[in-house]
């Protein structure tokens, strides 16, 4: 029995009333309580268990990354509207007083700030690519990460967050290595979510590229089947929410960061990421807001 019969507003209200999320005043940003975090940790652990024999190296990166990474991967060509560029104050004390005065007078103060060398990380896989520069070993590379991601898309809709966590895997190597790994995980991801009582499906997808040119990029991405998503209903049955996303980047990052395979070719990469808050929300929607009352096969899988 879905918690709120697929109504975005009721679902948001339900999460708040159950104390699971705590609004902070800005859409798409909220706190999470211990119950929410416990489900998230348990799901993340299931993912770790699934991948335990894969030999992935584990990394955690902070929410801010080198601005040059964003520039190198053409992020601003594709998603200029989603980027979170960090600005700060670099002036002298007199100007700091003017800044303070502007704020206290309720005036705009953006003119007192300038761009820093960091941006909020918009995609969980980005921070690791600079470390791949050079030649990857014959068996390729496999890493996994637990990273905060930022996207400037304020929305009242609870699954469309500005800041959220992704459990990410990145594979780097020959095209065959990368695609075989992606296909293996597509099945794994689907089975994992199904085993938690979620009606999951996989489908070809595209990124929300900016503008009219973006429609072209999205059509090209779909046609080449470069992106897949595993979805489940959270706020709508007709338009299920992407819980896990699989991207085959071909040579995009290999070229940007000078990554080569042993035979001297530009390396291919692919990544997959579980949107952890979304998985948790899908579970609350499917099984109700109190995990203690979830049916035993779902509860026992998360809390064995």
């Amino acid at each position: 029995m879905p918690a709120t019969a697929y109504d975005a507003e009721k679902f948001f209200r339900g999460l708040v009333d159950a104390g699971l999320i705590i609004p902070v005043g800005v859409p798409g940003i909220f706190g999470r309580n211990h119950v929410f975090e416990d489900v998230l940790d348990r799901f993340n652990k299931l993912v770790t268990d699934l991948a335990k024999n894969d030999g992935a190296e584990y990394f955690v990166y902070p929410p801010a990354i080198d601005r040059k990474v964003l520039e190198k991967v053409d992020y601003m060509d594709s998603f200029p509207d989603l980027a979170g560029t960090v600005f700060s104050f670099k002036g002298k004390e007199l100007t700091a007083r003017q800044l303070s005065e502007a704020i206290h007078n309720g005036e705009s103060w953006e003119q007192y700030e300038s761009m820093t060398d960091v941006v909020l990380n918009p995609a969980a896989c980005y921070p690791v690519y600079p470390s791949f520069t050079g030649t990857v070993p014959r068996e390729g590379k496999l890493v996994t990460m637990f990273n905060w991601v930022f996207r400037n898309e304020p929305s009242q809709e609870p699954t469309r967050m500005q800041s959220f966590r992704v459990r990410e895997f990145v594979r780097c190597g020959t095209p065959d290595q990368v695609v075989e790994w992606r296909d293996m995980w597509l099945q794994r991801g689907l089975h994992l979510l199904e085993s938690l009582g979620l009606p999951a499906h996989s489908e070809v997808a595209s990124d929300p590229f900016f503008g009219k040119g973006g429609k072209m990029l999205a059509a090209s991405q779909r046609q080449q089947k470069l992106k897949f998503e595993v979805t489940a209903p959270v706020i709508s049955e007709e338009k299920p929410t992407a819980l896990c996303s699989f991207n085959f980047h071909q040579e995009h990052f290999g070229e940007a960061f000078h990554i080569r395979t042993e035979d001297g070719e530009v390396a291919n990469t692919a990544c997959l990421g579980f949107g952890l808050e979304r998985v948790v929300m899908a579970l609350f929607q499917a099984h109700g807001f109190d995990p203690e009352k979830w049916r035993s096969e779902v509860h026992d899988k998360l809390w064995p």
């Binding site: 053409d74 060509d77 594709s78 009219k212 040119g213 973006g214 072209m216 990029l217 090209s220 991405q221």
Partner: peptide, 20 residues
């Protein structure tokens, strides 16, 4: 590249005064 083809499309729109 896909990104280059977007720039080509926008330039064609300007040159031929059409909308794709």
């Amino acid at each position: 590249t896909s990104h280059a083809s977007v720039n080509v499309m926008l330039a064609l729109e300007g040159e031929f005064d059409v909308e794709f």
